[in-house]
Design a protein around this nucleic acid. Structure first.
Lengths: 339, 339
DNA sequence: TTGTAGGCGTTATCAC
DNA sequence: GTGATAACGCCTACAA
């Protein structure tokens, strides 16, 4: 059995209140006594029982990170940012994975999150009524990461996807491409479908590049879906000289397909991604992409959450994280073309 | 404020013990009463306060997963396996990241793990005295994943690295390679350095393939380290026709270097990895590698841990997870060579 | 089968 | 500045 506050008190010849004060308000206790107590604490290896503190204060010193898929490096990286700031606050991070499965999500909420946790980071998943209702009943601070909840006034941390997508498209255009295919996220997905499409569309339009249904194809954000999407895109738009995909995984799936068709990247087709996963620099050629600074998104979401935890009624503003074009080898400048 | 057991009791016109029993031993309570209580529980949305239960029973319903690096897909995948079985047991998983930093590790132990958690999975990190001592003071079940602790009789879950490495090397030899470079993990690393090297050595020896210092180079397991290691290896062993690396990340780093030298994989040099990360199928050509079934390692480690949690004195045996050669495009069969 | 009561370890309020 | 004590909510002997 671990030592309790009482053991410390007895051995130090003080009351338990004094021991407690040494932890929670050291200034208020006589120097000499304090040192004696501290010594005994050290000696016994005493640490307050977190259940007891939690029971009294209703704080768990834990937050929960809800993400769609741990095996996706995007979320792993975000999680690592969240974990980083949590550690600094001496908080634990509890993982909830595959939250896009409603049953699984409810399971988490029912057994884990209820009252046991001081706050919640909810990542990359559209905040439907379903999720929003559960936030209400949970009654704890919530911060969104890489998704938005403006309709419910929930603070969020994310890049400006419209602008980022606009910039990516513009980069391709400035490199002399005019036949640009877009592999979008699912049509119904607010961010990876609609907003990134919107940025693409706006850039094409602003630069007077023709755009029709022919240019666009939709799919899930995965490698496999990217491969399939590229197949469809190439079938209906074979004259494309560049492809821009709504995620790096998709872009790399597209590269795989192109390679299998004997089309070289970037000699025959240029490819641009979105996210800047570690992966992007590992493939050959390196993938030119829009960096999201994912770790920062996680860290910032953590910062906001802890601010809300310390200060329940704070009016926390959403934060936009800067994006950045990372140039590697997968896009060719057609303005410098020789053959 | 959330409803307590007392609220339920009052509304259902029973004593709190009855309510408690409905949760913990439903059979022992009169059907009619039970249904009445259940209804009230539903109505109020009552759930037992985990702090109170924890305080009484000294169980947190949480385990901790200690890993070296969340951003490494290897650990993310393992974690996802752990999380999967934890959910099935209605347990939370708390992350401890970057445990190879001793200060950080101690921080975790000091503030988080002590008494707050029912068990521990410790991954891919050599169990030095330092870590082992802390396990002792923690006094909770520990299971090792992808590392070994035979010297302390700790149960572990891992592949047979010597055999797996032997098989990988044999695969290359059977494909007609006799000039095979090996990019090893750090020389001091028990598994990725010593055991995987040992498998390599044994296979070379058994098949009478010459082996000297020239064939081997050491490095960390990362992409960047793989790139650098390949550079060193190629400098001292330019006649190699195949490279076998102790991790997929290293192998892909090596591929990057080879590409930059104008050496084609697998036409000029074959490459073989170890792990079978998702990554391995995404690169071009696909990486031929030894699959570790990482998710299974995580799941099995979880299973063992829960067995120990339910049954403190069980004598749990270590488990070896099967490995498997995954053939993709990065190894060329020289026996079928035309040019 | 059901209810009563004590205790888990901590913190904060209140006397002294 | 220090000490006694109630309260947090649950579970389980034990008594009825």
């Amino acid at each position: 059995m671990n030592p309790t506050i009482r053991d410390v008190a007895k051995l130090a010849n003080v009351s338990i209140s004094t021991v407690s004060r040494v932890f929670n308000n050291p200034e208020s206790v006589n120097r000499e006594m304090r040192e004696r107590v501290l010594q005994v604490i050290e000696e016994l290896g005493y640490a307050p029982n977190p259940f007891a503190s939690g029971l009294r204060d209703n704080r768990s010193m834990a937050i929960v990170a809800m993400i769609p898929d741990l095996r996706n490096p995007y979320y792993a990286e975000m999680l690592s940012g969240i974990e980083e700031v949590a550690l600094a606050h001496r908080y634990n991070v509890i993982i909830c994975n595959q939250i896009q499965d409603p049953d699984r999500y409810l399971e988490y909420v029912k057994y884990f999150v209820k009252k046991k946790v001081d706050g919640l980071i909810f990542a990359s998943t559209e905040v439907t009524d379903f999720y929003h209702d559960s936030f209400q009943t949970l009654n704890m601070p919530v911060v969104l990461a890489s998704t938005e909840g403006s309709s419910w006034n929930l603070p969020s941390v994310r890049v400006n996807d419209v602008q980022a997508s606009y910039d990516a498209t513009t980069f391709l255009i400035q490199n002399g491409h005019r036949h640009i295919g877009f592999i979008s996220g699912p049509a119904h997905a607010m961010i990876t479908g609609q907003q990134r499409y919107e940025g693409f569309r706006a850039a094409m339009s602003d630069h007077q590049v023709p755009l029709s249904d022919q240019n666009v194809v939709y799919g899930e954000l995965s490698f496999d879906a990217g491969y399939e999407a590229m197949k469809r895109l190439y079938a209906k738009f074979p004259q494309l000289t560049a492809v821009y995909a709504a995620s790096d995984a998709m872009a790399i799936g597209a590269m795989k397909f192109l390679d299998q068709q004997g089309l070289e990247v970037p000699r025959h087709v240029s490819v641009m991604g979105f996210d800047n996963l570690d992966l992007a620099r590992m493939v050959t050629p390196g993938l030119t992409t829009v960096a999201q600074h994912i770790t920062d998104i996680g860290k910032t979401a953590g910062d906001l959450l802890f601010h809300l935890i310390d200060n329940r009624d704070a009016d926390v503003q959403s934060v936009t994280i800067n994006h950045e074009i990372i140039v590697r080898g997968s896009v060719r400048n057609r303005r410098l073309m020789e053959d």
